[in-house]
Write a protein that binds this DNA or RNA. Structure first.
Lengths: 201, 201
DNA sequence: AACGTATGGGAGCGATCGCTCCCAAAAGAG
DNA sequence: CTCTTTTGGGAGCGATCGCTCCCATACGTT
């Protein structure tokens, strides 16, 4: 009943995510959002309550799209886990560069900007981090089952090392660092998992 | 000539650094700064020109104190470089916790918040990053001269890996992650440098 | 066609933003 | 002392902040 919307709510959230991702929370004004989404203030507030709620929705949208896409790429299709990890990390540091480098990871950017003060945000960023850690753990477990041991590192240590490195890579991509240098770091951390096991004959 | 200041300029910069460090640039208002520094707007602007200039001074002050202190701790006093690195990284993720955890690194926080848009800021954060990388490189070189090779990794790879890991650790400290988990990541990356060489008899 | 309901548009709210100006107070220079 | 210079204090500038309200519009319902 009533007059239908002239805009697509999901599309609006996507655009809002894009803007928050690039500029951060505090540097993005409601008027900026209204211009970018093509919404008047009344529509924006009736639909999304307020700026903070819209930001939380943007964060959830990011987790449901970008983050999920990232974890899908951690699925082995029978490939060696070192290759999966390498391709995944290389993709992480180049995917935001498509069209526009220096965006980094929305979750990481948000955690550093608001994580220390905003509990609702912190809860979401920590959940996103946990998902990534869990995906890494699963991958390493699968590698062990398939005879690709990570020598010299127990499971916890390998997960923490990889996860920490990924956060560092995200920051460096945001900072505009040379992708080749990031690739060097990626190869180094893959090597830290131990020598590539011999191909079964 | 003229009336002398009733406040210490260096002390004011220190307090401003503290506030910018905790809240970031955009979330810190000039009135917040005035209250924290005990300065009226007129004194603040006469002394520091404007908010942005004061921020740059805060960034420089941080580099001249915290960053320099960090690089001093990378000096080997004849200790094995693995021990130096380990102690250094452990200190990095616990030093901001003295009194107040979740501050992270001012340079890293700033690079993610403003690095993509503010060239003057970017220039400073990149300079700070270069200093850290150079310090790591020097340490590794010294280790090689003293018969502590970093097996399996050439110099560039080791530097990039360590530097990236440090950025990740800084983000995680800012995010309030468990220090013990960070210690696990630290031990893992130290182990990635290769086995500890045997003690010379 | 008439009604009920939610929308898009926009003026504008009080508060705060970064910043400026004016003036009395305070100390060195003569 | 007087003069000069710079300070601390504070009112308040125009602009923008996040947000609210009102109303004509447009669609589903009956």
């Amino acid at each position: 009943m009533g007059r239908p919307r002239q805009f697509d709510e999901q599309d609006a959230v996507t655009r809002a995510t894009d803007l928050f991702w690039r500029r951060g929370y505090n540097a993005t004004s409601v008027r900026d959002l209204g211009d970018e989404l093509g919404l008047t203030p009344s529509s924006l507030y009736r639909t999304f309550t307020d700026k903070h709620t819209l930001f939380l929705r943007a964060l959830d949208h990011y987790r449901a799209t970008e983050s999920v896409q990232a974890e899908q790429r951690l699925d082995t299709d029978g490939r060696p886990i070192r290759q999966v990890l390498r391709d995944w990390m290389l993709w992480l540091v180049t995917c935001p560069a498509d069209g526009e480098p220096g965006r980094g990871c929305f979750v990481v950017n948000t955690a550093t900007e608001l994580g220390a003060t905003d509990d609702q945000v912190r809860q979401r960023t920590e959940a996103a981090f946990d998902v990534t850690r869990q995906a890494l753990r699963s991958l390493l477990c699968e590698g062990r089952r398939n005879g690709e041991p990570t020598t010299g590192l127990d499971l916890d240590a390998a997960v923490e090392l990889l996860f920490t490195t990924v956060l560092g890579l995200r920051v460096r991509e945001r900072a505009g660092h040379d992708p080749e240098r990031l690739a060097t770091a990626i190869d180094a951390v893959i090597g830290a998992l131990g020598p590539m096991p011999a191909e079964p004959s």
